[in-house]
């Protein structure tokens, strides 16, 4: 049984594509056959983050329109045999994604993959609703910032009313929160919403906290999913999130600052 995971947020620039690349690579490295699909038709970027931009021949829209078959469009990752990328079209508009077409492609993929990761475009328009419609699980990527939290809440409303699972009265989509760009020093000085603040508002299962990290930009510069940078805090945080998604109990890290010296601890209680 394959599971369809949508990576969504409402707001743009919060880390959906970074997360899609990291989670899909993480799942594939654990031995699960995984495909990651870019739903951002017209503004494709997943190929760039995955480092396969020069190998794109056919895309998702070509497959939907029967101009290519899936095997022609899927790009096998060079670092992990279990991982495939289905890029978005750069030249069409989002209306090219039809509910029937997307459903057919996902159906075909679910025959041979364990996980289908859907990288949603920002917004709540057609592309985003197509990405989440068939989902079994949702990872809501949120920054500790007012507009991102509000948009995430709106997206939760859409997940629970406009998805296939909602329309067919099936078991609801499993929703997880992934808090990204978390800046511990700023949280501790009261400048930034804390995990608890965001949880109090959204009350979702917490899949992980990804710390604000230089490693994310470094990884995207090179086209390497950040989870492959095992030395980095963000890479480790994504690896933890993958473990939690797969049902392992992993304590949350990166919620507090580095261990302090004895005197600091003494005075700060």
């Amino acid at each position: 049984m394959s599971r369809i995971i949508v990576i969504t947020s409402g707001k743009g620039g919060v880390g959906k594509t970074t997360t899609s690349a990291a989670l899909s690579m993480g799942l594939a490295q654990r031995g699960h056959r995984t495909v990651v699909i870019d739903f951002d038709v017209g503004l494709r970027n997943l190929d760039l983050i995955m480092g396969c931009e020069r190998r794109v021949v056919y895309d998702f829209v070509n497959v939907i329109n029967h101009e290519a078959n899936l095997n022609q469009a899927l790009i096998r990752d060079k670092r992990c045999d279990n991982l495939y990328v289905l890029p978005a079209s750069q030249t069409r508009d989002k209306e090219a994604l039809t509910k029937e077409g997307v459903g057919r492609v996902l159906d075909e993929l679910s025959q041979s993959y364990d996980f289908i990761v859907c990288d949603s475009p920002a917004g709540i328009e057609h592309g985003a609703t197509m990405a989440m419609y068939y989902a079994d699980d949702a990872v809501v990527v949120t920054n500790p910032e007012v507009s991102s939290v509000r948009d995430s809440d709106r997206m939760l409303g859409i997940l629970s009313s406009k998805s296939r699972r909602a329309e067919t009265n099936a078991e609801p989509i499993r929703e997880h929160l992934l808090l990204t760009r978390y800046d511990v020093p700023r949280v501790e000085s009261g400048e930034m919403l804390s995990v608890k603040d965001v949880q109090d508002i959204l009350s979702l299962d917490l899949l992980g906290i990804i710390p604000e990290s230089k490693a994310v930009l470094t990884a995207s510069n090179a086209g390497v999913p950040v989870i492959l940078d095992r030395e980095s805090d963000a890479g480790q945080a994504y690896a933890d999130a993958v473990s939690r998604y797969l049902g392992e109990e992993v304590p949350h890290r990166f919620m507090t600052a580095e261990k302090k010296g004895f005197f600091n601890r003494l005075f700060r209680g």
């Binding site: 910032e145 007012v146 939290v149 509000r150 700023r186 949280v187 000085s189 009261g190 400048e191 930034m192 919403l193 804390s194 603040d197 109090d200 508002i201």
Partner: peptide, 10 residues
């Protein structure tokens, strides 16, 4: 800090 204000508004 302003995080409290953010939380209340949200």
């Amino acid at each position: 800090g302003t995080a409290n204000v953010a939380k209340e508004r949200l």
